[in-house]
């Protein structure tokens, strides 16, 4: 997903942010960062973008972290799957 417009980024809803990949999120943050370096950005807009960037970074961090419950669930499925295969071989 290409996010190369400030207004598009600001318009992103929570659901839309959830759907973004880690790479998309980081790209959007990098884009915001590049805009921050431009002196043309109004201070009000910058504060608005700052808030959005923090939301995007939190989501990116969530995508990086492994939740214990999630890990236990996939481990359980894996063990059941392997056991099933072993049973079939026997």
């Amino acid at each position: 997903m290409q996010l190369k417009d400030i207004e598009d980024i600001l318009k992103l809803s929570t659901e839309e942010i959830d759907k973004l990949t880690f790479k998309d999120l980081i790209e959007a943050v990098e884009f915001i960062k590049s805009k921050f370096l431009s002196s043309e950005l109004e201070i009000e807009k910058q504060i608005e973008l700052y808030s959005k960037a923090i939301t995007l970074l939190i989501k990116a961090r969530e995508k990086l972290l492994l939740i214990k419950k999630e890990k236990e669930e996939i481990d359980r499925k894996y063990e059941a799957f392997i056991q099933n295969i072993e049973d079939m071989i026997e």
Partner: peptide
């Protein structure tokens, strides 16, 4: 890869915060 991503998030956060505070 994982450590770099974690670092990237933290660096981005610091930079954005710094840029905003600087502008303010």
């Amino acid at each position: 890869q994982l450590k770099n991503y974690l670092e990237l998030i933290e660096t981005s956060y610091r930079e954005i915060k710094q840029l905003t505070l600087g502008r303010l």
